[in-house]
Nucleic acid binder design. Structure first.
Length: 433
DNA sequence: TCACCTTACACTTTTGAACGGT
DNA sequence: AACCGTTCAAAAGTGTAAGGTG
């Protein structure tokens, strides 16, 4: 393992870890400190965005008193809107797959992190209302530590086991459709299922870097801006959903979580009771292997579906709550919820998909496009301004604002100059606490 | 010895190219 | 030429288990 301080001397040794969150459930017992109050919201993590808003409405600069941290996993969150930090009046977010998240949360959500990057399941899928249909917005997601503790699975529950590792440089995932109009975002749920988590501090793909055995909380940010690297921003709102808190792990610790994942994640279908990868089948395979080579063994599976072929119906968990959270809803198979590059986004910003104007700096060739972005060429965002004047919403146009914080344009400590939509952004050049 | 991490594996779903038909 | 639907192969995403590491 690499120590972040060695890797990122620019971060300094002055990490100050926030006190732990008082827990309230069976999985995350009461904790390490009292009075934990959103240390991350005061951090410079999003300075790159906020700095551009200095001359705009100052809600964020002097935000109202923040509520207490969201309840720990296993507690029943209020059925109301997520906790939000607002400078976008009237904008609200709701978690589309909230029931699924709650199910995991009641057990104690764990997220696998791997060197190569692992997707989150459940993924954050939200629907947004109150946007100006004409204006353009960016959707961002990041993950922040919930407390200053490291956790350990004690057979039946998670318990704090010492201080957290020093916080790593923060990265932000930019939704592939960004920037898109308010109408676009409100048309259908916005899914962040392509977000990947890694434990590799040297990760070259720009995935969100987490420590294993730590508790994290995803946050979703909505920024009004015409372009990814726009110099002028029209407001910002940050949202967090208490039920999306999770503990990062390299291997599942709680067997109940494993079962939930297998039951709910379509990619894990093979591990269901009647799947080909179920324990019975795996044991049978091992026995066959021990007996000797049996080349036709796997072909037999594909030829007609054995007794454990989950594709032949009889799935114990037929529905996929992640894909269809509500009965009667159009499933993502038919209408992907903003998961990939959209035609609209392409039409509006073709340059974003094919590279930037020549006068702009180009992406470092040593730092390729995020693999899941679906883009082939290098991407550099154009520097455009929000059109001044009324955009049809009555929302005050942002006056000329300060340019981006330099570390945004420089990509922070990593050579990540200009992430494209669907890519990731390094912003953590400063300690967070 | 222990806790945690990495890797290979076999499976499934997703994605996109290549068709052919209208 | 454009659009639509189908097919197929490759890529990507799963959890598991064995082995490695400190």
């Amino acid at each position: 393992m690499y120590h972040p301080r060695e890797l990122y001397p620019s971060l300094g040794a002055g990490y100050r870890l926030g006190p732990a969150q008082p827990g309230a459930d069976s999985s995350f017992p009461p904790g390490l400190a009292e009075g934990y109050r959103y240390p991350d919201l005061d951090t410079p993590k999003l300075d790159c965005f906020l700095s551009g808003m200095e001359a705009a409405p100052r809600t964020l600069a002097a935000h109202p008193p923040l509520p207490l941290l969201p309840p720990a996993m296993g507690t029943e969150p209020a059925p109301s809107a997520p906790e939000a930090l607002h400078s976008l009046p009237g904008v609200s977010l709701s978690l589309e797959n909230r029931e699924l998240w709650k199910e995991f949360s009641s057990v104690g959500t764990e997220m696998i992190i791997t060197k190569a990057g692992r997707r989150m399941f459940p993924a954050c899928r939200v629907s947004v209302t109150g946007l100006d249909p004409e204006a353009r917005y960016l959707f961002l997601l990041d993950v922040v530590p919930v407390d200053g503790a490291r956790y350990r699975w004690q057979g039946r529950r998670w318990e704090p086991s010492g201080k957290a590792e020093p916080r790593l440089p923060d990265r932000v995932y930019i939704h592939p459709d960004s920037p898109a109009t308010g109408a676009h975002w409100m048309r259908q749920p916005v899914s962040f299922h392509r977000v990947k988590l890694t434990n590799s501090t040297l990760d070259p793909h720009g995935h969100l870097i987490l420590h294993s055995m730590h508790k994290y909380q995803p946050r979703i940010h909505l920024v009004r801006a015409a372009q990814l690297c726009s110099q002028h921003w029209g407001g910002m709102a940050s949202f967090r959903f208490p039920e999306t808190t999770f503990i990062s792990v390299t291997a599942y610790q709680n067997p109940r979580i494993t079962q939930l994942k297998i039951a709910a994640n379509p990619f894990a279908k093979g591990f269901r009771e009647n799947g080909r990868n179920c324990k019975r089948e795996r044991d049978a395979r091992v026995k066959r292997k021990l007996r000797g080579p049996e080349p036709a063994a796997t072909e037999a599976y594909g030829s007609g579906g054995g007794p454990c072929d989950s594709t032949l119906g009889g799935d114990i968990h037929e529905s996929d709550p992640e894909q269809a959270s509500a009965p009667g809803e159009v499933t993502t198979a038919l209408a992907p919820p903003c998961g990939g590059p959209s035609a609209e986004a392409y039409l509006m910003h073709p340059a974003a998909f094919h590279g930037a104007p020549s006068h702009l700096p180009t992406r470092s060739p040593s730092f390729p496009e995020a693999p899941d972005s679906g883009r082939s060429g290098p991407y550099s965002a154009a520097f455009l301004e929000l059109p001044p004047g009324p955009g049809g919403s009555g929302y005050p146009a942002a006056p000329p604002a300060a340019p981006f914080a330099p570390h945004f344009l420089q990509g922070g400590p990593f050579p990540l100059p200009y992430p494209g939509p669907g890519g990731y952004l390094d912003v953590g050049s400063k300690p967070m606490y």
